[in-house]
Design a protein around this nucleic acid. Sequence first.
DNA 1: CAAAAATACGAACGATCGTGCTATTGTAGC
DNA 2: GCTACAATAGCACGATCGTTCGTATTTTTG
Lengths: 200, 200
Amino acid sequence: MSIQPTTSKGAATRELIVDRAYAIACRDGLEGLSIGDLAHAVGMSKSGVFAHFGSREGLQLAVLESAATRFGEAVLIPAVRARRGLARVRAMGQGWFDWVRDNRQGCLIHGAIGEFDARPGPLHDAVVALMQRWRDATSRAINMAVEIGDLRSDTDAAQMSFEIFGIALALHTDIRLFEPETARVHADRALERLLASQSP
Amino acid sequence: MSIQPTTSKGAATRELIVDRAYAIACRDGLEGLSIGDLAHAVGMSKSGVFAHFGSREGLQLAVLESAATRFGEAVLIPAVRARRGLARVRAMGQGWFDWVRDNRQGCLIHGAIGEFDARPGPLHDAVVALMQRWRDATSRAINMAVEIGDLRSDTDAAQMSFEIFGIALALHTDIRLFEPETARVHADRALERLLASQSP
DNA sequence: CAAAAATACGAACGATCGTGCTATTGTAGC
DNA sequence: GCTACAATAGCACGATCGTTCGTATTTTTG
């Protein structure tokens, strides 16, 4: 007996297309992603690929959404499995650093920020919403740490989230432009200094 | 009597083209810069613009070089006019923050990092060299502050440069995605705390 | 002022872009 | 197995891309 497919044929190929598109866009950015290249990469026709998304923008949105999901599963979910408090905050930072290290081709989200931060449109809005979600999650973890007593009560969660974000961005850049190992050491030290500065 | 032109006609129009290209690339990135658009923006023919650079890559390199000069004049030179020591380090950070604020359309260099950090080629090399220069300048200023006694003797200049860089990157992103004023406050606080953490 | 050199234009090239249409193929329910 | 429908291919479109070439025009030089 054959196993019933949990997804239709169309949804399955769409998923395959998005996966392949994600890999391409990690290196070349969402703007560097063309339907022709993508079609060739998955062994389909341009129109076949196109039909799944209705427009190039639809494809970009789907890929960005996929990236958000991957990031959530690779960083956020493992972090909330960590103990509340300082451990979880540290897990979020370290998880992000690991994510940056593992995506050597480039982080799609990081690229999307640069591509759409100054250009209004659905992509811009999606990037803002995505980043807002991540920053909120970080702030919540920080506030929990404050409540538990792992961090000082005058800790500004938004401020600390901002700084963690900055460390991750600098790491992302340095890993590609300079020495990856040195960059990681810098990031780890920066995070520990930041956490220690608000230690009770 | 007429004043002798200090530059030839060709060099002057080339400068004009690069200026206009710089403005475009600030918003759309160096990859989003097309010769056709640029030609229309300066009121010339495509081939006329093209002839000045020999290739699209040549144009991109010229624009990146122009951005480096602008950044140097707007941030580095004013900073070295500040008193040696902590004041100069602070001037570099604040100057960078001001630069990010004043380039509301986007910072070309920041965009170029994202576009070419993972793709080898002349542009990648140029970006690396540019960033290396800036980081070295920052490190020198930090080391001076250590020698003078403004910062603790165990201060790691590369580490501190890394962190200042991260703050600037986060500021760049937050200014465009969220509240510009809040972002600047976060950046200022982050810089002051970083400097204070190595205060003797 | 004439000759030489630099500069800009206009047209065209092949390639690729995103996006419509119309068949043709493959899949799923009866 | 037949039918209805989803999925994919094929083809063509207008637009734009970077680039080349020959020519006209302007600027610089002698």
